[in-house]
Design a binder for these strands. Structure first.
Lengths: 182, 182
DNA sequence: GTCTATAATCAGATAGAC
DNA sequence: GTCTATCTGATTATAGAC
């Protein structure tokens, strides 16, 4: 699964070959079938694991000691955590960001319950921080926030800007707009 | 090409079958090869056409009579235009949003010159509107803006919110954050 | 548990008739 | 320009030895 997550993160679902996953795990493609019934099942398990990790990581950050109880600061903490996790060496988190949008209909359905927990986590943070008289729909804000953050691994390249700085700018950008619009 | 754009918009590149494109054009798969040398060439032409359309549409809106010369209003106009175009019945614009991120390395290279024009269009609008002492990097803002907007067709469903309202919220969200952060 | 075959499937691409 | 028929190649998946 670790190898699968690594390849999926880099290539997406359709372009990922079982042979490449196997290579990363030090075996040949047919051996995978001893562990998983099919490619779809393997991808699905990676998705579930990644969604759980993402959700847990955000919740842990938000509930952590430094988070406090101010809803805006909690949301900011969640955004920072998600971006930094996506840019970390954890392959599952960014595999989800990359693969989930291109999942076949039928598989997305099976993963949806887990994904709902992830989205609900954001929904709660966003609704709690909603400004009085704000004009932006919470669901629209959530979709745009997730799309923004999940895009980060696709274009970020190590350079003068560190992940923590990107995370901070993502938080500034979203929160500035979300809180200001009213 | 129209049929290809329609299928690509809905399924992405890897999941798009030549047979389905052919069906939409009222022919069978092999007939496509009379018009295009390969599937890749066809997809590439759709991408180029889509990128040009997107760029032209934004520029036309920004240079239009209602745009004025205030840089912030120009950027707002560009955002509104792009979102509404993505949600229109034009298949090329959203095909780009969907397919470009998953293009194979080698093809992305060939499309990159055209895509640069699209990104430069945003770069100019964003730089012109950059607030004094703003803390958000223009390139980061551009990547996040494009990711936000391009995600719209993936989750928007016709309902109580009309495309124009989504476009307005996208503009409020981005501009609020971009202008406020300083 | 992993391997070496080998099937089974499928989609992109070609040949040649019409 | 489009068709039918076919080829090619890649990839998922199975069978059975070790």
């Amino acid at each position: 699964m670790d190898s699968a997550a690594k390849v999926l993160r880099a290539k997406g679902m359709m372009a990922t070959r079982l042979s490449e996953i196997a290579e990363g795990a030090g075996m040949l493609a047919p051996s995978i079938y001893y562990h998983f019934k099919s490619k779809d099942v393997l991808v699905e398990k990676v998705m579930l694991e990644g969604i759980y990790r993402n959700t847990r990581y955000i919740l842990a950050a938000v509930e952590g000691k430094n988070a406090g109880i101010d809803p805006v600061e909690r949301l900011r903490t969640g955004i920072r955590a998600h971006v930094e996790f996506l840019l970390s060496d954890d392959d599952y988190s960014s595999a989800v960001a990359r693969v989930f949008p291109e999942l076949p209909e039928e598989m997305r359905g099976r993963v949806l319950a887990a994904y709902a927990a992830f989205e609900n986590c954001w929904r709660d943070l966003i609704v709690a921080a909603h400004p009085k008289g704000g004009s932006i729909d919470a669901p629209v804000a959530r979709k745009y926030l997730i799309a923004m953050l999940d895009s980060t691994p696709m274009w970020y390249r190590r350079g003068k800007l560190k992940p923590a700085q990107i995370a901070e700018q993502a938080a500034d950008l979203f929160l500035g707009g979300y809180l200001a619009a009213g």
